[in-house]
Deep mutational scan, measured.
Amino acid sequence: TTLTVNTQTYTFTSEEEAREFARRYGAKTIRKTNGTWEVHG
């Protein structure tokens, strides 16, 4: 199964959650914005 996250942004309140998600789905960018963490595919 392949998950494609081209134009979607996922927002997390903790860096740990964001990094775990990025690691699991191979997202390329993690960015902190206004106190939340954004993961970009």
Results as ranks from 00 to 15, higher is better:
residue 22 A to L: 04
residue 23 R to F: 06
residue 19 R to H: 06
residue 38 E to I: 12
residue 33 T to A: 14
residue 19 R to C: 15
residue 10 Y to A: 04
residue 36 T to P: 01
residue 40 H to V: 15
residue 39 V to N: 01
residue 11 T to M: 07
residue 32 K to C: 15
residue 24 R to T: 06
residue 16 E to K: 11
residue 9 T to R: 10
residue 22 A to G: 03
residue 15 E to Y: 14
residue 15 E to A: 05
residue 34 N to T: 03
residue 30 I to D: 02
residue 26 G to R: 05
residue 14 S to C: 08
residue 38 E to H: 04
residue 41 G to R: 08
residue 40 H to W: 12
residue 20 E to G: 02
residue 38 E to V: 13
residue 32 K to Y: 15
residue 9 T to P: 08
residue 33 T to V: 15
residue 1 T to S: 12
residue 24 R to Y: 05
residue 14 S to Q: 03
residue 24 R to W: 06
residue 2 T to L: 10
residue 12 F to Y: 01
residue 40 H to I: 15
residue 2 T to I: 11
residue 32 K to G: 08
residue 12 F to M: 00
residue 37 W to D: 00
residue 13 T to F: 11
residue 21 F to Y: 06
residue 31 R to W: 07
residue 32 K to Q: 11
residue 3 L to G: 14
residue 30 I to R: 05
residue 22 A to K: 01
residue 9 T to E: 04
residue 36 T to Q: 11
residue 6 N to Y: 09
residue 31 R to K: 11
residue 28 K to D: 09
residue 1 T to V: 09
residue 37 W to R: 00
residue 2 T to Q: 13
residue 36 T to F: 12
residue 20 E to K: 07
residue 15 E to Q: 04
residue 10 Y to K: 06
residue 1 T to H: 12
residue 13 T to M: 09
residue 16 E to R: 09
residue 21 F to H: 04
residue 14 S to L: 04
residue 29 T to Y: 14
residue 28 K to G: 08
residue 8 Q to A: 11
residue 17 E to H: 04
residue 10 Y to L: 05
residue 27 A to R: 05
residue 40 H to A: 11
residue 3 L to F: 06
residue 15 E to D: 02
residue 3 L to I: 13
residue 35 G to S: 04
residue 4 T to A: 13
residue 25 Y to V: 14
residue 31 R to H: 08
residue 20 E to R: 08
residue 13 T to W: 08
residue 26 G to L: 04
residue 28 K to H: 14
residue 8 Q to G: 10
residue 14 S to Y: 03
residue 3 L to E: 13
residue 15 E to L: 11
residue 27 A to G: 15
residue 37 W to G: 00
residue 7 T to S: 10
residue 31 R to M: 10
residue 7 T to F: 13
residue 19 R to F: 08
residue 37 W to K: 00
residue 37 W to Q: 00
residue 30 I to E: 04
residue 33 T to C: 15
residue 38 E to K: 03
residue 32 K to F: 15
residue 19 R to K: 10
residue 29 T to P: 09
residue 25 Y to G: 02
residue 28 K to C: 15
residue 36 T to H: 12
residue 17 E to Q: 07
residue 28 K to A: 11
residue 38 E to Q: 07
residue 6 N to A: 12
residue 36 T to K: 11
residue 17 E to K: 05
residue 3 L to V: 12
residue 2 T to C: 15
residue 38 E to P: 01
residue 2 T to S: 14
residue 4 T to V: 13
residue 10 Y to V: 06
residue 10 Y to Q: 04
residue 34 N to A: 06
residue 11 T to P: 02
residue 1 T to N: 13
residue 34 N to L: 04
residue 31 R to V: 11
residue 23 R to D: 07
residue 5 V to Q: 13
residue 31 R to A: 07
residue 25 Y to L: 11
residue 22 A to R: 01
residue 24 R to P: 01
residue 15 E to H: 04
residue 2 T to V: 09
residue 21 F to W: 07
residue 37 W to A: 01
residue 5 V to S: 13
residue 24 R to M: 10
residue 3 L to S: 14
residue 10 Y to D: 01
residue 37 W to V: 01
residue 8 Q to D: 08
residue 16 E to M: 08
residue 25 Y to T: 14
residue 18 A to L: 01
residue 13 T to Y: 12
residue 27 A to Q: 06
residue 26 G to D: 04
residue 11 T to D: 02
residue 19 R to I: 11
residue 33 T to R: 11
residue 11 T to N: 05
residue 27 A to P: 02
residue 4 T to F: 06
residue 3 L to H: 14
residue 12 F to L: 00
residue 28 K to L: 12
residue 14 S to P: 00
residue 34 N to W: 01
residue 21 F to R: 00
residue 21 F to T: 01
residue 1 T to D: 13
residue 12 F to E: 00
residue 33 T to N: 13
residue 6 N to S: 11
residue 27 A to L: 15
residue 16 E to I: 09
residue 15 E to M: 05
residue 18 A to K: 00
residue 24 R to G: 03
residue 33 T to I: 14
residue 24 R to Q: 08
residue 35 G to D: 07
residue 8 Q to H: 13
residue 36 T to V: 14
residue 21 F to P: 00
residue 6 N to M: 13
residue 3 L to T: 14
residue 19 R to T: 07
residue 23 R to Y: 05
residue 31 R to P: 05
residue 11 T to H: 07
residue 28 K to E: 11
residue 5 V to A: 12
residue 13 T to R: 07
residue 20 E to V: 04
residue 26 G to F: 04
residue 28 K to P: 07
residue 27 A to S: 07
residue 31 R to L: 11
residue 23 R to W: 05
residue 7 T to I: 12
residue 30 I to P: 02
residue 20 E to S: 06
residue 9 T to Y: 14
residue 39 V to E: 01
residue 4 T to Y: 07
residue 30 I to Y: 06
residue 1 T to W: 06
residue 3 L to Q: 14
residue 13 T to H: 10
residue 10 Y to F: 11
residue 30 I to W: 03
residue 31 R to I: 13
residue 20 E to I: 06
residue 35 G to Q: 03
residue 38 E to N: 02
residue 18 A to F: 01
residue 35 G to E: 05
residue 27 A to N: 05
residue 4 T to L: 11
residue 1 T to A: 12
residue 35 G to R: 01
residue 25 Y to H: 11
residue 41 G to M: 15
residue 5 V to H: 14
residue 11 T to S: 09
residue 24 R to F: 05
residue 39 V to S: 01
residue 27 A to C: 15
residue 23 R to N: 07
residue 7 T to G: 07
residue 17 E to G: 02
residue 26 G to T: 02
residue 28 K to F: 10
residue 12 F to V: 00
residue 12 F to P: 00
residue 37 W to S: 00
residue 4 T to N: 14
residue 34 N to S: 05
residue 9 T to N: 07
residue 22 A to H: 02
residue 18 A to W: 01
residue 30 I to Q: 03
residue 5 V to G: 13
residue 40 H to G: 08
residue 1 T to G: 14
residue 7 T to W: 12
residue 26 G to I: 02
residue 27 A to I: 13
residue 32 K to H: 11
residue 34 N to P: 02
residue 22 A to Y: 03
residue 41 G to W: 15
residue 2 T to E: 13
residue 23 R to G: 05
residue 22 A to D: 01
residue 35 G to V: 02
residue 25 Y to Q: 05
residue 30 I to T: 06
residue 36 T to M: 14
residue 29 T to K: 06
residue 7 T to K: 07
residue 17 E to I: 03
residue 9 T to C: 15
residue 19 R to A: 06
residue 9 T to A: 07
